Simulated scan of single mutants.
Amino acid sequence: MPDTRISKLVQMWISGWVVSRGSSDPIDEPWGWTIDVGQPRHVARHVLPEPSEADVRKIVAETSAPGTWLKLFAEDQTVLPWVGPGWRLDGPGFLMTCNLAPESPEVPAGYTLTRWTRGGVSRVLVRTLDGHFAARGQIAHAGSRAGAHAVVDQVATADEHRRKGLGGLVMRTLQNTAYEAGARTGVLVGTPDGRALYSALGWTAHAPMASLWYEPSDAAQ
C-alpha cells in the first residue's frame, strides 16, 4: 500500500523548500510534483515520494533539458537502473523531521553570529572575529499557523571550522527562530555527513532520497 505518511512529509518539505529557494509553486503530477527552479544547472526538478519504475522511465524518456533533476525517495541502487545515459547520481539524502522546542545556544569564543529574516526565510551566519566565513544555514516557514512547520536548508560549515560545534549552533539557532515564529515541526533532507549531526540534535530519519540530474555528454563539454 502507498505510504501516505512519507508523501505528506515530502509535501511538507517541498512547501518550505520552494520558499527557501524562491522557486515556483509545486505543480501537482500523478506521481508527485514538478518545481521550476530556473537556474542554468538546475532548471526544474521532479519530486516522487513513492517512485515506480514506470513513472521514472516515462519522465526520463520525456526529458531533453540539461539541468533537470529527479528527487526520488528510494535507495540509490533501486532507482539507478531506471535511468539511462546522461543521468548522473548526486550524493544520497535522508528525509528527517524533529519536534521543535525552545533553544538557547551559546556562541563559541572566537565567533560571532548574525541572523535575519526576510520573505519567510530566516538565515544564520557565523563568522570569525575578523569576519571570515565559518558556517551558515537557513530555515523557511511554511504551513498554516495551526499546522506550521519549517524547512531547514543549505546548512554548511567551512572545512577549517568543522568539529567546533558550529553546525549545532546554526541548527539550534534556526530551530529556535522557527519555534518563536510558531512552527512546531522541522523538516529537512540531509546528507550522510549531516545526518549524524541532525540525529544528535533529535532529528529522526524517515526515508532515503536518491538525487539525479540530467547532463548528457554533449552538454558537459
Rank of each mutant, 00 (worst) to 15 (best):
P2W: 07
P2S: 12
T4K: 01
R5F: 11
S7W: 11
S7Y: 08
K8R: 06
M12F: 07
I14F: 15
I14D: 13
S15G: 10
S15V: 12
W17P: 01
V19M: 05
G22L: 09
S23M: 07
S24R: 05
S24Q: 02
P26E: 00
D28M: 06
P30H: 13
P30C: 12
D36F: 08
P40L: 10
R41K: 13
A44R: 11
R45M: 00
V47D: 00
L48C: 12
P51M: 12
S52W: 05
S52V: 04
E53Q: 15
E53V: 14
A54L: 10
V56F: 01
R57L: 05
R57V: 00
K58Y: 07
E62V: 03
A65G: 01
L70W: 03
K71A: 08
K71P: 02
A74H: 14
D76I: 11
T78G: 12
P81A: 02
P81Y: 02
G86Q: 12
L89F: 11
L89M: 15
D90G: 11
D90E: 14
G91Q: 09
G93K: 01
C98W: 00
C98Q: 02
N99Y: 05
A101C: 05
P102N: 00
E103R: 13
E103Y: 08
V107M: 05
P108Y: 06
A109Q: 07
Y111V: 00
Y111L: 03
T112N: 10
T112K: 10
L113Y: 08
L113E: 13
T117R: 05
R118Y: 02
R118N: 13
R118D: 12
G119Y: 03
G119N: 13
G120D: 06
G120I: 02
G120N: 10
V121K: 06
V121N: 06
S122Q: 04
R123W: 07
V124F: 14
L125T: 06
V126Q: 08
R127F: 05
R127Q: 14
T128P: 08
L129S: 09
F133K: 07
F133D: 15
R136A: 13
G137H: 13
Q138K: 15
A140I: 09
A140R: 10
H141C: 04
G143D: 11
G143T: 12
A146I: 15
A146M: 14
G147D: 15
G147H: 15
G147N: 15
H149R: 06
A150L: 04
D153K: 05
T157G: 07
D159N: 01
E160L: 05
L166I: 00
L166V: 07
G167R: 07
G168S: 12
G168V: 03
L169Y: 09
V170N: 03
V170E: 00
M171I: 06
R172D: 07
L174K: 04
N176H: 14
T177G: 02
Y179G: 05
A181S: 10
G182K: 12
R184C: 02
T185I: 14
T185V: 11
G186Y: 01
P192Y: 03
D193V: 05
G194S: 00
G194A: 03
R195H: 04
A196Q: 06
A196V: 13
Y198P: 04
Y198C: 06
A200L: 01
A200D: 06
W203K: 01
A205E: 11
A207Y: 00
W213M: 08
E215A: 14
E215C: 09
E215G: 12
E215S: 13
